[in-house]
């Protein structure tokens, strides 16, 4: 158990007894929970679960896009007492199609009332880091799906979020592009101490990226297992330890969520 002081320093996210039921004309759908967990600053936590297990609901509730029925989400404010910044990467298509890539990235900085010169500087260095410099004046529809998601990720990162929520951001891409972006993400996060909560149904993706995995069971989504992935970095998809781990996790996953 953490002491009070330490908790304030390290906790990036605390979720207590969160649950959510959707009420629709066809009846009630108990989508999530109750779910409780904590995350430390700099951690990369991956929620793994089958389709329809409430992963997205969980993420949306944490982001404040949905109101929970019970429970609380606690995200500590920044050291200066500022509001914490939350980034969110949608599955796809959340870039504004009427804005250039540059304008898309500039949008959150404008909202934060950052002056023009420093906005420009931040956007340019982010584009450079993501390998998007040559697309600055392109519009989203002129980019491939992978490039679009890369730009969406860049737009979230340019805000320097305390907590980055990612909702199956690479699931709409082909395997090769998806793997490429996973590698990029890892490299980027090595430099920053961003806390990431990543949601996926792809076991390999989870094992490749995450420090820790939480397995969610079928509807209503509940935590059925939490475990640390003890693979050394950098991970390689073709190494023996990686494939071994993947296979063992796949087995447990099957048995955990099959019913």
């Amino acid at each position: 158990m953490f002491s009070e002081v330490k908790k304030d320093d390290m906790t990036a996210l605390k979720v207590i007894n969160l649950s959510k039921t959707y009420r629709e004309s066809t009846g009630e759908v108990h989508a999530l929970g109750p779910v409780s967990f904590e995350m430390e600053t700099g951690e990369f936590l991956c929620f793994l679960g089958p389709t329809g297990c409430g992963k997205t609901t969980l993420l949306r509730t944490i982001a404040g896009l949905e109101k929970p029925d019970t429970g609380k989400v606690i995200i500590p404010s920044r050291s200066g007492g500022e509001e914490p910044v939350i980034g969110y990467v949608f599955q796809q298509g959340a870039l504004f199609p009427w804005m250039s890539i540059f304008a898309n990235l500039e949008f959150p900085l404008k909202a934060k009332k950052i002056v023009k010169d420093s906005r420009r500087e931040k956007v340019e260095s982010m584009l450079e880091m993501m390998g998007l410099s040559s697309f600055a004046s392109s519009y989203p529809h002129q980019l491939s799906g992978g490039m679009q998601q890369r730009a969406a990720l860049a737009r979230s990162l340019v805000m320097e979020p305390d907590l980055l929520l990612m909702d199956e951001p690479f699931s709409s891409l082909d395997t090769r592009t998806s793997q490429k972006l996973q590698e990029n993400l890892r490299d980027l996060l090595k430099k920053a101490s961003t806390t990431v909560l990543f949601v996926t149904h792809n076991i390999e993706e989870a094992v490749y990226l995450a420090g820790e995995i939480i397995v969610l069971g079928h509807r209503p989504g509940r935590i059925v297992r939490r475990e640390t992935i003890d693979l050394s970095d950098p991970r390689s998809r073709v190494s023996e330890s990686f494939t071994e781990y993947l296979v063992s996790l796949r087995k447990t996953f099957e048995s955990l969520v099959s019913d």
């Binding site: 982001a63 910044v85 969110y88 959150p108």
Partner: peptide, 23 residues
């Protein structure tokens, strides 16, 4: 989704209206 994205990116009502809803 565009409205939600604008909200998460920290845009206020006026800015959302001008830069998201109108376009």
């Amino acid at each position: 989704m565009h409205l939600e994205a604008a909200r998460i990116l920290g845009a206020g009502k006026l800015s959302t209206f001008r830069h998201v809803i109108i376009p």
